[in-house]
Design a protein around this nucleic acid. Sequence first.
DNA 1: TAGATTGTTAATCGATTAACAATC
DNA 2: TAGATTGTTAATCGATTAACAATC
Lengths: 221, 221
Amino acid sequence: MPIKYGTNSSTKAAPAPTLRRLPTYHRLLQAMMEDGRLTVSCTVIAQALVLDATQVRKDLAATGIVGKPKVGYFVDELTRSIESFLGWDKLTPAVLAGAGNMGKALLGYDRLAEYGLHIVAAFDADPARIGSPAGKLEILSIDDLADHAERLHVQVGILAVPPGAAQTVANLMVLAGIRAIWNFTPVRLDVPATIVVENVDLTASLAVLSNRLANARAAAS
Amino acid sequence: MPIKYGTNSSTKAAPAPTLRRLPTYHRLLQAMMEDGRLTVSCTVIAQALVLDATQVRKDLAATGIVGKPKVGYFVDELTRSIESFLGWDKLTPAVLAGAGNMGKALLGYDRLAEYGLHIVAAFDADPARIGSPAGKLEILSIDDLADHAERLHVQVGILAVPPGAAQTVANLMVLAGIRAIWNFTPVRLDVPATIVVENVDLTASLAVLSNRLANARAAAS
DNA sequence: TAGATTGTTAATCGATTAACAATC
DNA sequence: TAGATTGTTAATCGATTAACAATC
């Protein structure tokens, strides 16, 4: 049998639905680890999360892990496999633009580091905010974003500015060498195809909620 | 030709991807309205948002609107159609559980009312927070949530508590007659099938971002 | 009228789910 | 060994995209 070299690291594109489920598995595995559980099968995971066992198996396989027939996976090994696949085992520096409500919420969310993200600087355009503290950082002028991001080789930008400023600040980030934008504005950003954009669109989420609720009401009446 | 009675209101289930795109159309239409534009075609919308024209047409049709061949849609009519379909034209009261970083961000986000949501009360378990102001509201004890929600016939609950408390507070909401939960925790809630749950999972979003960035880096090197 | 655009049916694509051989 | 579980290939399902007749 020829030796197969596994691609364990995060070098393979996985479908977005799979990627979005991985943190849920990770959370379950952590709870199991605390319970002292050593191994786990896809069937058990699927039952706990109300998912299809085959889907779980394919999701886990995407991280590069190989299971043992009749046994399943070792909980600790699987946990590490997910963490390494998602890059949660090493800190990625990020800059935050927009220190409003959402920006401050992200700055105060210490657990972000558990997910591999470390906000190293925060910027805002409002003179009233510049210079004031936010979390452990001092808010800097948005004019200094490019300089800082470039100098520190930051590759991730968090966009939490008002919608009207979203595209302008995104352009700024791209110019500064940012490679990925975590976009908390509802604006569809127009950036080069090489830039990764992940949208956290509350209006989109709310649209789904509203429609589903209206439907449930209609079905009940 | 038989008369067809349109189902304009939000009584029909639409696919989630369609629902998630509707706010983007709405935003574009608002900008067009400000520019004084009267009509618009799917082709124009599709080009502006880098989408497929047929997809736009189907999305818009889901809201119940009927267009005119050669003309397209009237911008104001289309705007109203989306708003009515998403329920953005009438205020839905909601209660917020958890007045931490994320909870406070939502409380301070006045524009939520533009999307039909109105937070009428905020609750927390931390005695240090109870009684203090948050936005225009005073934070109440989580023990009073069920009472308030039930008395005011609130149907939407916003869950922004720590992960450890998520399931407990969700149970509380269900007992109080809440029909839909906007879940900002990464916890997969176990609730009756009749309850609508919409997850805003930052860890899921971050997982996609991390993987896509790692891939882009691998492709570039 | 001519032709742009809608509404709808058919084809494609990708993700989920089912089936099953390999394995410990 | 017997049987639970993995890994993988095939079938299904739903959303996207293409094709095209109807219409103003």
